[in-house]
Simulated scan of single mutants.
Amino acid sequence: MNSPSDTTPQAPLADVTGLLDGVPRQRGPVRVTPGAAADGPAPAPASGAVPRTAPAPDASRSPSHPLRRTAGIPFTLAYAAVLAVTSLVARYADPALVYALHQASSTDVAHLLRAPVPVLLASGLWVAGGILSPYALLFMVVLGTLERRIGALRTAGVFLAGHVLATLATEIPVGLAVLAGHLPDSSLHRLDYGISFGVAACAGALAGLLGPWLRWPLLALFAGAAVTGLLTLVDPMTSWGHLISVAIGIAWWPALRRRGEAATALAAAS
């Protein structure tokens, strides 16, 4: 005898197998519900199959993500790490040792005549006031912004040009003045070290890439501080070095602007 359930029309096989876990889709013809369109929607995936979904976007690849922002300034970050180490040495090491290190790193005339390359490199390892000083903050802001605009190698080139050329432009006249008898021999051993010339040159170069509302205040900040130093005669040689460094940075404007125009044209063409 048939039970009442046997008289009920059976559900199509394609509809049932989709409801049972672990039942594989059967081979062979599949019955379709009467009235369904032949070109209807695609059949549901087999039971147990996980539907594919588009991978979630990686937030770290966004240009505004902090990792992307810091990854774009490797030269600035690496240099800041070196300055942090030397600042700790200057703060916590024995004062006699720190003074000896500063003397050995001084870009005075005597050291430049004996070992110009090592002393120029060593001079750039120190920052006056330590890594938490206002000048260290300017270093991070100026070099980091410039590096994001022109890249690490060009930023290093601008910094090195300001550091080396401004040092030579201020120390060579001292040596000539000593030879002429206008300055004492002690001027050949003046203490001179730090990153200020390189930072001033980077500030001068960066000003050329900014709009007028940021360009002139930035130039006024660095050039104005140098002019004030010259007027007060606190350290005229260093003040002249800062002015020369800013001028060296400004001299980079044509090359950096040509590069920016070429990059813009390449982007438009692509």
Rank of each mutant, 00 (worst) to 15 (best):
A161P: 00
R114W: 02
D94C: 00
V127G: 01
A71K: 01
A90S: 11
S62W: 14
P12I: 03
A110T: 14
T86M: 04
P217K: 14
A42K: 04
Q26V: 15
P29G: 13
R61Q: 10
A201C: 10
A268F: 09
S106P: 04
R91P: 00
G198P: 05
A44T: 11
A115K: 07
V119R: 03
L243D: 11
I73E: 01
R258T: 09
P63D: 02
A161M: 11
A247D: 10
L83I: 05
L233A: 15
L214S: 13
I250R: 06
V199A: 07
L113C: 05
S133T: 05
A152L: 04
R69V: 15
G260H: 13
A59S: 06
V109G: 01
P254I: 14
R190I: 13
P173D: 08
Y79F: 09
D15F: 12
V141R: 06
T145K: 02
P74V: 08
S3I: 01
L137T: 07
L88S: 04
S64M: 05
W253M: 10
A267P: 10
A36D: 13
L176P: 01
T70R: 04
S47I: 07
I131E: 03
A78Q: 03
A262L: 11
A269Y: 12
A265D: 12
F159N: 05
V109P: 01
A81P: 00
W216C: 03
V30D: 08
G249P: 00
D185Y: 09
A268D: 08
N2G: 12
V234D: 13
R257K: 11
S123D: 03
S186H: 10
H111R: 10
D39F: 12
L77D: 00
A269C: 04
A205C: 09
L160A: 15
L188E: 15
Y92H: 11
A251C: 13
A128M: 12
V109N: 04
A201D: 07
D235A: 14
T107A: 07
L210E: 13
V199P: 00
L179M: 09
I244Y: 14
V142T: 05
P4C: 06
P43F: 13
T155V: 03
R257D: 09
A265Y: 13
T238D: 06
V174M: 06
T170R: 03
L83M: 05
A269E: 12
H242C: 00
V50Y: 02
S47K: 02
M237R: 11
A255N: 11
G229L: 05
E147I: 00
L13C: 08
M1Q: 15
D21Y: 13
Y135Q: 01
P212F: 14
R27V: 15
L113P: 01
H189D: 15
A104L: 07
A161E: 07
F159Q: 06
L256Q: 14
R154W: 14
T238F: 09
P55K: 09
L121M: 04
G35T: 06
Y92W: 08
V117F: 01
G72P: 05
A56G: 03
R91F: 00
A14L: 14
A80I: 02
V142K: 02
R258W: 01
R149I: 02
T228Q: 10
L168G: 10
V164H: 04
P66A: 00
G260E: 15
A262M: 09
L97A: 11
V119G: 06
M1G: 15
T107Q: 02
P4S: 08
R68C: 09
G40Q: 08
T7I: 09
A96E: 13
